[in-house]
């Protein structure tokens, strides 16, 4: 009897331990996923409406983080004021990119590949510019290190909670915006058929500009949150571009809610994966998922079938 009780006790503690580890792993995945989800939403939004894979959100992610750093740490401004100023800056930058790079290319009927290459050029130019101004040294907001809150045996910090909540709130806000506002409806119309939308009186260029601004704001907020959670350096955009694109493809390219799911999924699988494998395989795990999706389900989890797939 005593042995049985001891065994039950042992199994109970083992179960508790596994549950605690699993909860922490899940939370770690959600934290990473929240960043990927924001970036994936940013990429997917542009792809959905402007129909090309724009890499510039990766650069705006960096611009936003550095702008907030300059206003908050160097100029000593209030954090929320710094955040607003940083988001204004990324909005202005993205308007500039659209006006001086993408719009002239669209007017010349440049194909998606040319636009992708141009966006890659924009990404490298802006990242290089940040390197020139701020150097390669790593910067931090210098927030105090505080032990996180305990939730079901797992630990999560205030910044990480803000990161997850922000990601979800922004997603809901975006869905609401797209479905209830005139501008949102115009964006959806444009995503369906540009020519019909234009014939219906929708101002195409203005709607595209708003799309770029919303996409930039998503990337910008992600940049500031990552800078707060980790640190900031000129090359911080490379990794999120790769993961954001992977998440948007896994979710279903061009579908914003799917991008969010893709982001969280990648984050969780990565973190569970490195529990069993060395952490050096983290990126490899994400790319294996990407390759599997490209091979067996190229439209992603929630993507719609292409005309070719429908007609068989």
């Amino acid at each position: 009897m005593e042995n049985l009780l001891q065994s039950v006790n042992f199994l109970f503690f083992l179960f508790l331990l596994i549950a605690m580890v699993a909860t922490q792993l899940f939370i770690n995945g959600i934290i990473a996923g929240a960043i990927y989800a924001l970036m994936a939403s940013s990429f997917s939004l542009i792809y959905n409406i402007v129909k090309f894979m724009d890499l510039s959100p990766g650069a705006l992610f960096v611009v936003s983080a550095f702008s907030a750093y300059v206003f908050n740490v160097l100029f000593g401004l209030n954090f929320f004021l710094s955040l607003i100023l940083a988001l204004i800056i990324v909005s202005v930058v993205t308007i500039g990119i659209n006006k001086f790079v993408y719009k002239p290319l669209r007017n010349k009927n440049a194909n998606n590949f040319i636009l992708l290459l141009a966006s890659f050029g924009v990404f490298l130019f802006i990242t290089g510019f940040i390197l020139l101004i701020f150097g390669a040294e790593v910067k931090t907001f210098g927030l105090p290190i505080i032990k996180g809150y305990e939730i079901f045996g797992a630990i999560i910090t205030k910044t990480q909670i803000i990161l997850i909540v922000t990601s979800l709130v922004l997603f809901l806000f975006l869905q609401l915006f797209m479905k209830t506002t005139r501008l949102g409806k115009a964006m959806r119309a444009l995503a369906d058929d540009r020519q019909v939308a234009s014939a219906l009186g929708i101002k195409v260029e203005k709607t595209i500009a708003v799309t770029f601004i919303i996409s930039a704001l998503l990337a910008g907020i992600a940049g500031i949150l990552v800078a707060l959670e980790q640190n900031l350096e000129h090359a911080m955009g490379f990794s999120v571009v790769l993961k954001g694109l992977t998440a948007s493809i896994v979710g279903g390219i061009g579908n914003v809610p799917a991008a969010l799911v893709g982001g969280f999924l990648i984050g969780i699988i990565e973190n569970i994966g490195i529990w069993f494998l060395p952490s050096g395989y983290k990126d490899a795990i994400a790319f294996v998922i990407l390759i599997l999706f490209l091979l067996f389900r190229p439209r992603g989890l929630f993507g719609t079938k292409t005309r070719e797939e429908v007609s068989g």
Binding site: V21, Q24, L25, I31, N231, S239, N271, W275, S279
Partner: peptide, 20 residues
């Protein structure tokens, strides 16, 4: 013995592995 690559910024899971 937890290894990570240069440029890694998220150590939460490997810290958890070590802590266990």
């Amino acid at each position: 013995d937890q290894l990570f690559n240069f440029g890694e910024k998220d150590f939460k899971t490997i810290i958890l592995k070590a802590k266990q």
